[in-house]
């Protein structure tokens, strides 16, 4: 369905020395520097999969999406979607895809929302009857009714995002690209949008690629994730595999019997661990100790704690995905 091979994109940037002098200098003799925003990324996505594309800020996610949707030409490498080359075959290719860039809208700014859909209906030549059905469905899932008569520029962010997602689905695309579809939304709207994505994926076998910084999007939607960092692919696999591979952080929570008797320094001192492997925090009299279970096994940690302090309410927790990803972003991973 989607084949990405050795995709690479380089940007040429003008390097400007600081200050006025630098500005003047670069006006007459600009110095260029080439940076690879995306470097040798390959992956395949089968039909009907929801792929989560994650990575820290500036990793190159949006750049990949732009190349996959045909609005940016790769420096080298190729991507083929449904057997089509996005940049070369643009006009025919975009009929088969739906795209939402969370930070911008594809709706006509000045038109009432309903008319934007009317325009899109013509642009994608959707037959009347199909259009009716489609609008009913989208209306139901995304609850567009409240604002469908208002001009797009008066919509709130959450309303606009729902409207944008509906617009990208109007022509029943085979592939849906979503670049941060839940950015800046409240819990209810997020849920709304996730449901829409799941519904469409389930009933129409739509392939979805989405980028996000919200880990619950990933947990709820994606069967597979690809993680990129500084333009390179650093992880490709299921979320469960990621958990078992990197889920080595555990969290120990306890409440000392007598708070005054507990000394953080002594407690940590006995463990001989530091940095990312051990972090301690406390609130409301509760202490949270995050530790690397590879460096110190859970069993040992427990017996150490029990022998050192008198505590009530001792509990042990697995690190959640957020924790894992935070760690991966921070340290980088070699795959």
């Amino acid at each position: 369905m989607i084949e990405v091979e050795h995709l690479k994109k380089e940007f040429r940037k003008v390097v400007k020395e600081p200050g006025l002098k630098g500005s003047v200098k670069s006006l007459f003799k600009p110095k260029y520097e080439t940076v690879a925003a995306v470097d040798d990324i390959s992956f395949h996505v089968p039909k009907g999969e929801i792929l989560g594309f994650i990575g820290p800020n500036g990793a190159g996610k949006s750049t990949v999406i732009k190349m996959l949707t045909g609005i940016l030409t790769p420096t080298s490498g190729s991507c083929t979607i449904n057997g089509k080359d996005p940049a070369a075959d643009r006009k025919r290719y975009v009929k088969e895809i739906g795209v939402v860039f969370g930070q911008r809208t594809q709706l006509w700014w000045d038109l009432p929302l309903r008319e934007t859909y009317g325009v899109l209906k013509e642009v994608y030549s959707v037959p009347d009857e199909k259009y009716q059905k489609r609008m009913e469905l989208l209306n139901e899932v995304l609850e567009l009714d409240d604002f469908i008569g208002s001009p797009v520029r008066t919509l709130s962010l959450g309303q606009r995002m729902r409207a944008d997602i509906a617009a990208s689905l109007l022509h029943s695309p085979k592939v849906l690209f979503l670049d941060e579809p839940t950015i800046g939304l409240d819990v209810v709207v997020k849920n709304n949008i996730r449901n829409a994505i799941m519904e469409i994926n389930r009933t129409e076998k739509t392939t979805v690629i989405l980028t996000t910084h919200d880990i619950s999007d990933i947990e709820l939607l994606c069967s597979r994730i690809v993680m990129v960092d500084k333009g390179h692919k650093v992880y490709d696999g299921s979320l469960d595999a990621l958990k078992s591979k990197y889920g080595i952080m555990r969290e120990l929570v306890f409440q000392p019997e007598i708070a005054e008797n507990f000394s953080e320094k002594d407690f940590i001192g006995g463990l001989k661990l530091g940095g990312e492997d051990l972090t301690v925090g406390h609130e409301n009299g509760k202490w949270r100790v995050r530790f690397n279970s590879e460096k110190i096994p859970v069993k040992d940690m427990l017996s150490y704690t029990l022998s050192h302090i008198e505590a009530k309410d001792i509990s042990m927790r697995e690190a959640d995905v957020e924790e894992i990803i935070r760690r991966l972003y921070k340290e980088g991973v070699g795959v």
Partner: peptide, 13 residues
Amino acid sequence: DGSIAMRLLKPVD
């Protein structure tokens, strides 16, 4: 402002 992207994403000339 990059909104050219939105035009290029429509199946129109």
